[in-house]
Design a protein around this nucleic acid. Structure first.
Lengths: 308, 308
DNA sequence: GTTATGCATAAATCTTCCTTATGCATAAGG
DNA sequence: CCTTATGCATAAGGAAGATTTATGCATAAC
């Protein structure tokens, strides 16, 4: 079919020179010297096998073929510029954050407004996702994922360590005369007995090999739901205290036992593809979220360990 | 207005990869390795600040923004390819030869058909031009110019040395009982007394400071016209024997005196801009014309001295 | 005539792009 | 289920090519 294009730097130089009808101006537009433009155009002419410009004393003009070529080439470059302009612009003003549901509901929902006030030029779209989804397929600019490490090669910040402990409504605790030990928990319904966190927590609390009916794990993606059911008194949930802060402070939930469990490397992560490292909106969002968490004193120690 | 474009090799790699949905295939289309494509696209993504492809295990797919961008970029490149394809193709099959009138009428007219038979794929357009025109403004692929050196920097071949001597019709010579000496010429009308060649020839013939009425010089551009007037018996012309060969052989003209004059560097030149050096049609035409002149034994000694 | 402008050219440098070599993950095939 | 093949990522080294600097030249402007 069509042959390969000649050298692209040469085409670019030609485009600018044809448009401006001056090698000097073309050079300055392209951020290079007049000599470089002259050289590139000479190369292109030799490649094509015919001259593109007439060299007059103090001005150049296009040859017939140069004119013919320039019309289309200038159009094509205009289209390219427009394409990149569009995609860059749209990109600068819209930040798409994919976030696992728990974090979106318990954290972003209440604080995002502060980021938006501080950065009125950036519009935000939150894409919540459950535990099954994978960040790399969400077409988002940054992603907040739960528990597991972010995709290979992505820049990531560990945000909040995934600690967990049973939580329940004070009313439910009262039904058994208060919860005073880990054993007491077992006398109550568990909201998601299949959640592996239960086993780990009971283990740490000294109750080995606790027998829990083996329902499918739903994990942190649904922690928000779990919390609501706990508040409603449907049972004890295994939850992360930081994300129940509000309910704890208002007496909707209590944390009966002072034992926190965790799993190495399980945490909430903020992550983004390396390509987004230099993106303004991404940097702003990243820095904002890290600062907020630091203020709360919950920022994971390894937060700063990311590919920068 | 619009910002500068990102690196063009990167855009090219993206275009091919987006079209073929494969870095490997893109690399092979562009004549480079898969690694190079991967690298270029990574650069582009970092420059833009967002990813263009999702990297799946064994296939890639475009992100939303990648898709959006690729549609326009592919179009723009298609336009570029078409532009170059058109201008190259048109160019390969049409050879525009600008030639000064003398050479066009006396030489090309009769022999060009041989070139065309030998190269049926090349169409020829002859643009004759008078002494006032300058080859560099004729939009021709090659130029045949008379007398003066070709434009600076152009590749050139000296074809035929500009030798000259008086010529006239046998009938006109008879009117004064035959022309036997240079002085006899002065007894006849001169077709273009202003032509400086006359002075030079008379000088060489031993007649210094000949007095010729000072009419404007018309020079070789009109040698064809001059020859015709000489054949018609209107006077003696100062002409180049090689270009009157036919008339001499048929007795339409005679060269009465055996003195040939010339001026250093005055000759017919074939020339073309350096850009055309590698053009097939230009090389074919150049080689053909040099061969033909060599067969005739009139090829100037310095013919091979050109910028190659 | 003098100056200033704009393009051409050559040499040297330096950037950038590309290749080679390798690793890694996954899909395919036995 | 294990092996093989495919496709992309990455790092280091190298080669090609682009760019700058310095200069020349021609002509238009003053």
């Amino acid at each position: 079919m069509h042959n390969a294009l000649p050298s692209l730097p040469a085409i670019r130089a030609f485009e600018a020179a044809a448009r401006l009808l001056s090698f000097t101006k073309a050079g300055s537009e392209l951020g290079m010297t007049q000599a470089a433009v002259s050289y590139q155009i000479k190369l292109l002419e030799e490649k094509l096998g015919f001259p593109l410009f007439h060299r007059n004393a103090r001005r150049i003009e296009l040859t017939d073929k140069g004119k013919q070529l320039s019309l289309k080439v200038i159009d094509a470059f205009e289209a390219l510029r427009e394409a990149f302009y569009d995609v860059r612009n749209e990109n600068d003003t819209l930040l798409v954050v994919s976030s696992n549901t728990t974090f979106a509901l318990n954290w972003l929902a209440t604080r995002l407004v502060h980021f938006q006030l501080a950065n009125p030029d950036i519009a935000i779209r939150i894409v919540p996702y459950g535990p099954a989804a994978r960040p790399e397929f969400l077409n988002s600019d940054v992603s907040i994922s739960a528990c597991y490490a972010p995709p290979k090669g992505w820049c990531h910040h560990r945000l909040v360590d995934a600690t967990f402990t049973p939580m329940l409504s004070p009313e439910l605790a009262e039904t058994i005369g208060g919860v005073h030990s880990a054993e007491d928990i077992l006398r109550l319904p568990l909201i998601d007995p299949g959640d592996p966190w239960w086993k780990i927590w009971f283990d740490k609390a000294g109750i080995k090999d606790v027998d829990l009916s083996n329902r499918p794990a739903t994990r942190m993606g649904s922690q928000a739901l779990e919390a609501n059911r706990a508040i409603a008194g449907q049972g004890a949930g295994i939850l992360t205290p930081y994300f129940c802060k509000h309910a704890l402070e208002n007496g909707l939930l209590v944390q009966p036992i002072d034992i926190l469990a965790s799993i190495d490397d399980e945490a909430w992560y903020l992550s983004y593809p390396p390509a987004n490292k230099k993106s303004r909106k991404v940097r702003l969002f990243r820095d904002w979220i890290l600062t907020e968490l630091q203020k709360d004193g919950v920022l994971a120690e390894q937060a700063q360990k990311y590919n920068a």
